[in-house]
Design a protein around this nucleic acid. Structure first.
Length: 429
DNA sequence: TAGGATGATTATCC
DNA sequence: GGATAATCATCCTA
């Protein structure tokens, strides 16, 4: 009991005496005989607390009960809470104000953008659509992959939400448990609501770090899925025969300047049921491959030239249809465009095997040219540089530098046609 | 199954 | 920004 005055002094020195937040009955304890009595009470309580650990369990329990029932306990408890709050918590509180984790924000944003978190809006169909658009592929072919992507994304979303729910549930349970424990303990030691709140925050932070791992894993899964989906765009499908023929017809009919305008590309794309980007790709590939191996493409060129000639012959034999003829494409060709202004197609025509176009409708004059040219070609081994005005087929569009000659870019696939029989070369013209 | 054909992608140039 | 050239990846056919 010798220590009692020292202890009291110590505590009052910290914040009891004259403390603005001190309860009225405690403040009154600074003077008077009643005050001396209360001091004695508080000293008593503190002494009991100090010695409680030295006692046996039963004794301690009994002492705890006695302390809990002590008439000065609430007052002392409040003071201790206040002291605690003003020292430890105020310091920690300042440190707790942390900015939001940028990594977590990135993950959240990504999950939101991919349609994994946030309200369900088609299971990330927007992302899939964007990916499909980026691929430039035709919609029909992508639809299967698209739905597959959505299904897998939906699966990821479901797993994510299930796990997230589990985490949240566990977090809530644990928080409740800890809060109950603290409330229980707050009967015997000063635990303020603020401290409990702080503890809850700590728990939430711990669980949110676990959630971040979940979010990270989910993001990785989405990225893998996305990359696989985008890789799928490399899986190409050959264009159908009809589309290839339409493109080839245009290419060989504009051989001197095989650079379709945007309009022409759009129209070709529409006719071929492919995208404009695919048309551009096709022409890019065709130009380079044609230039690299003209000889190889000669037969093909001849074939398309023949078709044009047939077209011309048809036009000729069926009277003047100069204003609206269409290229007699291969059977079943859905769309065709005028090849008339396509004089690159040589003065006359040649069939590869002689049987690809020799229909009854071929005009006699054309047939005659065919025969003549077939002869010439057979003598020259195909393409002959010696051919001049009546070149069957020549890489006339390519200049000495390996580039294409300058020629007006056709403004449209359906360019105005020339009169029947005007199958000629741009260069010769 | 090998090899050519072909659509797509990428780096580079103008 | 569009064209070219090289290359990749897949399709197709003998």
């Amino acid at each position: 009991m010798d220590e009692q005055p020292r202890l009291m002094h110590s505590h009052t020195g910290v914040g009891m005496a004259g403390h603005p937040g001190l309860p009225q009955h405690m403040q009154e304890g600074n003077g008077g005989t009643d005050g001396d009595g209360r001091k004695q009470d508080i000293g008593d309580i503190l002494q009991q607390i100090m010695t409680i650990t030295d006692q046996s369990l039963d004794e301690a329990q009994a002492r705890k009960h006695a302390l809990n029932c002590h008439r000065m306990k609430p007052a002392l408890f409040n003071v201790l809470c206040e002291i605690k709050e003003k020292t430890v918590l105020s310091i920690r509180g300042a440190q707790e104000e942390e900015p939001p984790d940028p990594q977590l924000m990135r993950l959240d944003n990504m999950l939101l953008a991919e349609g994994v978190s946030g309200p369900e809006k088609g299971g990330g169909s927007a992302a899939a659509a964007a990916a499909a658009a980026a691929s430039g592929g035709a919609g029909a072919d992508n639809s299967a992959e698209h739905s597959d992507y959505r299904a897998k994304l939906s699966q990821i979303r479901q797993i994510y939400h299930t796990e997230l729910e589990k985490y949240e549930q566990a977090c809530n349970e644990f928080t409740t448990h800890v809060m109950n424990l603290l409330r229980e303990q707050s009967r015997t030691r000063p635990i303020s609501p603020k401290e409990i709140e702080r503890m809850v925050n700590i728990i939430h932070r711990k669980f949110s770090s676990i959630q971040m791992q979940l979010k990270q894993s989910t993001c990785e899964a989405v990225m893998i899925l996305r990359s696989r989906f985008l890789d799928a765009r490399r899986k190409r499908r050959n264009f159908n025969k009809q589309a290839t023929e339409i493109l080839n017809e245009y290419f060989y009919s504009h051989l001197s300047n095989p650079y379709p305008s945007e309009e022409a590309k759009e129209e070709l794309a529409k006719k071929c049921a492919i995208t404009v980007a695919q048309v551009s790709n096709w022409f890019g590939n065709k130009r380079i491959r044609y230039k690299k191996n003209i000889g190889k493409f000669q037969e093909e060129a001849n074939m398309y030239a023949a078709r044009t000639a047939v077209n011309a012959a048809n036009a000729s034999s069926h009277g003047s249809q100069a204003n609206s003829p269409s290229t007699p494409n291969s059977a079943g060709s859905a769309g065709s465009f005028n090849m008339s202004n396509s004089g690159d197609l040589f003065m006359s025509v040649q069939s590869l095997n002689g049987d690809s176009y020799q229909g009854a409708q071929v005009g006699a004059n054309v047939q005659s040219q065919v025969d003549t040219l077939r002869h010439v070609i057979s003598q020259t081994g195909g393409y002959s540089e010696g051919l001049t005005a009546n070149q069957m087929y020549s890489p006339q569009g390519i200049n000495a530098n390996g580039g294409w000659q300058d020629a007006p870019t056709p403004s449209s696939v359906t360019s105005p046609t020339e009169g029947p029989g005007s199958v000629h070369s741009d260069t010769s013209n």
